[in-house]
Amino acid sequence: MVLITRKIEFAASHLYHNPRLSPEENRRIFGKCNNPHGHGHNYTLEVTVAGEPDPVTGMVLDLKELKEVLEREVMQRMDHRFLNHQVPELKGQIPTCENVARVIWNLLDPQIKQGRLHRVRLYESADLFADCYRNGANVD
């Protein structure tokens, strides 16, 4: 099995707020991230697909197709958007790194036609990221 990883970057804003909690609790739990006007990040997304290289093309999957999937499913949905208000898949969820990674996994998984989606790693900053991967997968 060979793993192939493609990286993209997008910029988006978000805020952490749970309407079921009081304003004080929101401030206590979410701190600065509860600022009602939101704040933004440059997200880096690494998408890893696992598979066997095709004997004819030598490819696990056609990278051009993966690029198009990422453009359609992630960039067009999330780049330069306010995640809380403009991404329907995140409606009713706090757009933490964990939840955004999970939503991206769910968007990409059915779109990978060659090979199998292995891992989604979403960096919110250089020091914070979330991983989604299949249980038992060999992750670096």
Partner: peptide, 17 residues
Amino acid sequence: SAAPLRERGVKVELGRR
């Protein structure tokens, strides 16, 4: 809210440096 993913054998982890 992670349960449906977990049922499909997908795990979520948080990384911090």
